[in-house]
Each structure stands twice: as C-alpha cells, then as structure tokens.
C-alpha cells in the first residue's frame, strides 16, 4: 500500500477564476461586495434602499443571483443603474465563473461599486469565492439570534453583519445583544450595522460604510 500526497484544494478552479476577478477588480478600483443571507432576510430590499439613496451619477452596478425568476433584477433595475440577473437553475450559490460571465460587456473601470446579491442560502455561498473584497452577511430579526452559531461559516468569513428589519423588534423574540455576542464569538472582528429598510433606520450608516470601502478601494488603486 502506498500513500500519495495530493494536497489539492477542492474548488481550486473556482478559486483560480476568483483570484483573476479579484485582480481585475483591484486593477480597476472597483469595490465588490458579496451579500449573503438566508432567503427572506431582506437582501433585495437593502439593495433597493441602497440604490435609491445614490445620486444618478454613482458608478454602481448589481449582479443578483436566484435559482429561478428575474424578479429581483426587475426590482433593482427601477433605480436606473446597470443590473444583471444570474439564474442558477437549481444551484444553491453563485460561483466565480457565473460572476465572470455576468460581467461581459461591462467596463469595470467605469464602476466604483459592484454589489453581488448571492442566492438566499447561508451555507453553500460561503464555500465559493467570487473575487469580492468583502462578504456581507445579512441577518434579519425574524430569524433566530443564534444563527451565527448555527451557520458559523457565513459569519466567520464576513467583514460586516447587517442586522435587518429592526423595526420588527417589538413583535419578535429576538435578542439583539445575543445576536451581536454570537456573531463576535465566531468572528471577533466583524462589524455590525443595524438597519430597517421600511423605516429607514441605519441606512445612512450602511451607505457610509460602503462609501468608506469605495474610498479605500480607490486609494489602493492609485499608483505609488
């Protein structure tokens, strides 16, 4: 019997494409944010409110993933910014090749921000690098405050947790402090913003967070 070392990363082809994408995004100074969450946590609503608040000259585009339908792309296209839908036809996540194909014809140097709305799922999307600068996990208060403990991968790999639908806090048994504590027990560095897309709470902080990251991405692009 002979043991042969292989030491190969599974999904290495996805990782290779993701690294190429990351290099393209960095070269052109495009900030890419990969938004992941359970179905129904409010990803599309958050992106709607985000686009709504941007001036028309903002250089932003959106790629949105769903298993079926282009409903989200149609919702997001109302704000006048470029939007593309990826319909995965059964796949529970976006992968780097899907994102690469979705960018065909877009001049990234004309974009400061690319928002990716992943398929609603807190497990599989965490395995697939899309070349993003940051993952953002969205958790709504209609879900359990122990979700960071149940789905640690999503929270471990995200730079920011958006606690969404906080206008519903009076009606649901969601412990905000427990949610923060649980998220930080998985990822001590995770940043947290609280939002309500219907009442408008926290959206300024969210836009400021994006603005700071865009500024950072542009600064890294500058020579020297």
């Amino acid at each position: 019997m002979e043991r042969v070392a292989i030491e190969k990363k599974v999904l290495s082809e996805n990782d290779r494409i993701a690294q190429q994408l990351r290099a393209r995004f960095a070269e052109r100074g495009t900030l890419v944010l990969n938004c992941i969450s359970s179905p129904g946590s409010g990803k599309t609503s958050l992106l709607e409110r985000t686009l709504e608040g941007f001036p028309p000259e903002t250089r932003v585009a959106v790629v949105t993933g769903d298993i079926q339908t282009d409903n989200d792309a149609r919702r997001l296209a109302r704000f006048g910014f470029p939007v593309r839908q990826i319909t995965t036809a059964g796949a529970c996540h976006l992968d780097a090749r899907m994102v690469e194909k979705s960018l065909d014809g877009w001049d990234l140097s004309e974009l400061d921000l690319l928002l990716i709305e992943n398929v609603g799922n807190l497990v599989c999307p965490t395995s697939y690098d899309l070349g993003e600068e940051s993952k953002i996990v969205i958790l709504s208060v209609t879900e359990g405050d122990d979700k960071p403990l149940k789905y640690p991968g999503a929270f471990a790999k995200s730079r920011l947790m958006v606690l969404n639908k906080i206008d519903l806090l009076p009606y649901v048994p969601f412990d905000m402090e427990a949610a923060r504590r649980n998220a930080r027990s998985i990822n001590p560095e995770i940043e947290i913003i609280e939002t309500s897309c219907t009442a408008g709470h926290g959206l300024d902080a969210w836009r400021q967070w994006i603005g700071a990251r865009i500024h950072e991405a542009a600064r890294k692009e500058e020579p020297g």
């Binding site: 019997m1 002979e2 043991r3 042969v4 070392a5 292989i6 030491e7 190969k8 990363k9 599974v10 999904l11 395995s127 991968g153 471990a156 790999k157």
Partner: peptide, 11 residues
C-alpha cells in the same frame, strides 16, 4: 475553512 484533498492510498 479548509476543503482539501489530502492524500490517496494506492494498492
């Protein structure tokens, strides 16, 4: 976060 193929045993 690993997802690696580490080794293969052959006869």
């Amino acid at each position: 976060s690993e997802l690696d193929i580490a080794y293969l045993e052959l006869e």
